[in-house]
Nucleic acid binder design. Structure first.
Lengths: 200, 200
DNA sequence: CCATAAAAACCGTCCAGACGGTATGTTTTG
DNA sequence: CAAAACATACCGTCTGGACGGTTTTTATGG
């Protein structure tokens, strides 16, 4: 017996397609291209059909945000090394996921969408920030060292450069950059709030 | 001859105010808030007055971009250390300028605008990337080491977190982060394409 | 297994508001 | 007075989304 009744209309699949089309539109043609009509057309559905599943543009964007966060979260979880007390566990996974994004793969365009959303709406900034902070609390025993922070910051920098293709000095040396960052010694986590090594 | 004619209407000052108001609008309310009417109202001028100085929205954005790049460039130049062969001269200055941005100062909000513009318009991505690459060519003898790249990437990460206030884990530790990054040894510039030093 | 009614999925049109931009004044400056 | 600096009024377009209609799926009862 078929696990999927294979009915003609598949609402769940359509919802996914709508979100993916929205992501692709943003990445390929910029935020202004994200209109209900464009999304509907790309997904091969009418505007009414789109509005049936996402009752407003905000709802659509919200769904997009949720999808991206969930996707990124699962990717990071999958990349986390098993050794429980490995320094900078989370930050290293965070970096790896971002560094390995291939913008030519539709599913991986999703992450770029996040930055674009952050730029349009302060509301999503807050949600993203709290997501990061939550993860950081969860991994506070391994990911509080200055070097762990540095890895995450550098990852964000890589992420940023993914947007517009990035300067040649970055995009052409992806692998080399990641390799170098992975050799950095994160050092033990610093549960103490300050760790001044005597600045310059 | 008076340096300040102090006439009632001051076009030059208005143009500056228009750009600053545009920057503030973007940073505080997101890109969608950047409309001609909003900018004009914030600057205390009519829409016609705005269009008199910037004949289209694109012209306004272009002016914004130019202002930001010029401001950032001069800041970095001023922060570059005098010793000619100091490793990562440029990258360290780049980092310092970004890390010291105080988003509560209107003039310094300008830099955040850049990211937002990058996210909306691929055209400005290219212009920004080429600006960076140009600077990098200029400083290729001091700023090609992997660690120098890392400093710039981390700076971009800080920059990004400036957008939405950034997660608490970053915004509240600004100084500590900068201090740590400054202690990293950039190592000598690597004119050769690879330079693995194994660990920090 | 079928008939059928209700609900869910989807379509196509229309409209109000917003936005960029123009055209035409009116005031200020030199 | 001429030109620059600004104001006011208005237009065309685009977009979100409301609305009513149509088709497909599901639930129900015999």
């Amino acid at each position: 017996m078929m696990t999927r009744p294979q009915r003609k209309n598949n609402p769940a699949a359509l919802r996914l397609r709508l979100l993916d089309c929205a992501a692709t539109l943003i990445v390929d043609h910029g935020v202004p291209a994200l209109t209900l009509e464009n999304v509907a057309r790309e997904a091969g559905v009418s505007k009414g059909g789109l509005l049936h599943h996402y009752s407003s543009k905000d709802a659509l964007i919200g769904g997009l945000f949720d999808m991206v966060v969930e996707w990124f979260g699962s990717q990071v979880d999958a990349a986390i090394e098993p050794e429980e007390n490995r320094p900078a566990r989370f930050s290293r996974a965070y970096l790896q996921v971002i560094a390995n994004i291939d913008m030519s793969v539709p599913a991986e365009k999703r992450l770029a969408v996040l930055i674009l959303m952050l730029s349009s709406d302060p509301h999503y900034c807050a949600r993203w920030n709290s997501w990061v902070d939550e993860r950081l609390r969860e991994h506070h025993r391994t990911d509080t060292s200055p070097m762990a922070r540095t890895l995450r910051l550098a990852a964000d920098g890589l992420w940023l450069s993914d947007l517009g293709g990035g300067p040649d000095s970055v995009s052409s040396k992806r692998g080399e950059i990641l390799q170098f960052l992975q050799t950095l010694d994160p050092g033990p986590a610093t549960s103490t709030p300050h760790a001044d090594k005597g600045g310059q």
